[in-house]
Lab assay of single mutants.
Amino acid sequence: HNGKLCKLKGIAPLQLGKCNITGWLLGNPECDSLLPARSWSYIVETPNSENGACYPGDLIDYEELREQLSSVSSLERFEIFPKESSWPNHTFNGVTVSCSHRGKSSFYRNLLWLTKKGDSYPKLTNSYVNNKGKEVLVLWGVHHPSSSDEQQSLYSNGNAYVSVASSNYNRRFTPEIAARPKVRDQHGRMNYYWTLLEPGDTIIFEATGNLIAPWYAFALSRGFESGIITSNASMHECNTKCQTPQGAINSNLPFQNIHPVTIGECPKYVRSTKLRMVTGLRNIPSIQYRGLFGAIAGFIEGGWTGMIDGWYGYHHQNEQGSGYAADQKSTQNAINGITNKVNSVIEKMNTQFTAVGKEFNNLEKRMENLNKKVDDGFLDIWTYNAELLVLLENERTLDFHDLNVKNLYEKVKSQLKNNAKEIGNGCFEFYHKCDNECMESVRNGTYDYPKYSEESKLNREKIDGVKLESMGVYQILAIYSTVASSLVLLVSLGAISFWMCSNGSLQCRICI
């Protein structure tokens, strides 16, 4: 991952900044910058967002509201009850120091605090018919004063009620008058409520006091790749198909172990950190130390980045220098085999997901714990399936590479015959000098055995068991695999060879 928040398929997220979902939807004055928000790819909250409900109280069923919003990608904020005409018999300019803005008392931008007009609070009834052709999110509140005197001074009615009804919602609220500790300079409380109004449905408000009335509502448009994440990451000019709280993932790998919460087309989250597919040879310690064997393909974004291909070729060293050249036929066979294998694994496992966190309130801790156990169970199954699949494929890959290298080895052996000696570690020792032209003939299969047989015969008789390297004779190393990324691999195959001279070296080696 890149540690950044990015656009998702070209669409920017909605960053709530210092506000949370509650503050944004109710219209906390400190969240005025969010009022123009219309569309987004996903919503970003920060872990310690401080601006929620400015007048103390709870947004009821907040967790369910977050779940609903996680599939919303755009909205239209509109005046559901026009301020100047909807409440002619009531005062609608209630403000509070708890919702101060720029040093002055204020109130929510989407709600109206209705109080008595003169000395009376006549029963009010108002309704709205949803003609938007889509779901409408309606929010309101109920004020709970701290004393009967406060109730009387604001609403005149000691036994007030609030009723809200639609086809799918029907509740009646009565204020709970009680002494409470002071929070944000208030002994009173406000509880906030919401409902989704279906197209064509009607919502009716009736009250004799204590109503925090809707002013603006939201017509919602769903987008199934949307979601809500909690993150401290910063926004950058970048684009992605998959976003996590820790950063964007741009990967076609089937798995990731970065974060379980994802938005967009994302690899499946697994616990494993070692889900690797081999593309090189079986481990040979001396070669492995030099980083030549054991190439791997990573299938977990965050564990290993991208696929690494092994390729086969020849390396030689003689009086004229040293050089490398790919054996294109065996390399292409290996590439085709690995590509098919990788595609097979991805096809089997690479279903892209959006995974969002589930919200539970403080009273639902047991449910949250149960949900976590269920999620953990599914996660263990996914991890096991992934590891088992790759384990089985790896064994076949190792066998496949062994065969490829063996074929190259036999190709060289059949040409050199007794003009060189096998020394048991995949290397041959020449009994004759071999210049670049000679080396090329070994690589392309045109090695002239009779041409060098007499010199080889004489050297075999002279050496008589002495280690060949100390006599200045020449080696050919018969097994060799270097490691390159897919891009470098293609470039390498396009070149005939490249040279690395070893000044004054008397050794001649050709490596497979």
Rank of each mutant, 00 (worst) to 15 (best):
S231A: 13
N232E: 11
A233N: 08
C238K: 06
N239G: 00
N239W: 09
K241D: 01
Q243C: 05
Q243H: 12
N250S: 06
S251A: 15
S251L: 08
L253V: 05
P254R: 02
T262A: 13
E265R: 13
K268D: 04
Y269H: 12
L275R: 01
M277Q: 05
G280V: 09
L281R: 03
R282Y: 06
R282M: 06
N283I: 11
I287Y: 07
Q288R: 13
L292S: 04
F293T: 04
G303P: 06
W304L: 07
T305A: 03
I308L: 13
D309S: 09
Y314D: 08
H316S: 03
H316Y: 09
Q317A: 08
E319S: 15
Q320D: 12
A326S: 14
A326E: 03
K329R: 15
A334V: 11
I335L: 14
K341S: 06
V342C: 02
I346Y: 02
Q352W: 00
F353A: 13
T354G: 06
T354S: 14
E359D: 12
N361Y: 07
N361S: 15
L363I: 12
R366G: 14
L370D: 09
N371T: 07
K373V: 08
D375T: 15
D376M: 09
D376R: 06
D380F: 04
D380H: 08
D380K: 05
I381D: 05
T383R: 12
T383S: 08
Y384I: 10
N385I: 07
E387L: 03
V390W: 05
E393R: 07
R396E: 10
R396N: 06
T397L: 07
L398M: 12
D399F: 03
D402N: 10
L408F: 11
Y409F: 15
K411G: 13
K411T: 10
G424C: 12
M439K: 10
E440M: 10
V442S: 15
T446D: 12
Y447C: 08
S453C: 03
E455H: 02
E455C: 08
E461I: 15
E461V: 01
G465S: 12
L468C: 00
I479G: 13
I479C: 08
V483D: 01
S485M: 00
S485Y: 03
L487F: 13
L489A: 13
L493Q: 06
L493K: 00
S497H: 01
S505D: 00
S505Y: 05
C508M: 11
C508Y: 14
C508K: 02
I510E: 12
I512M: 13
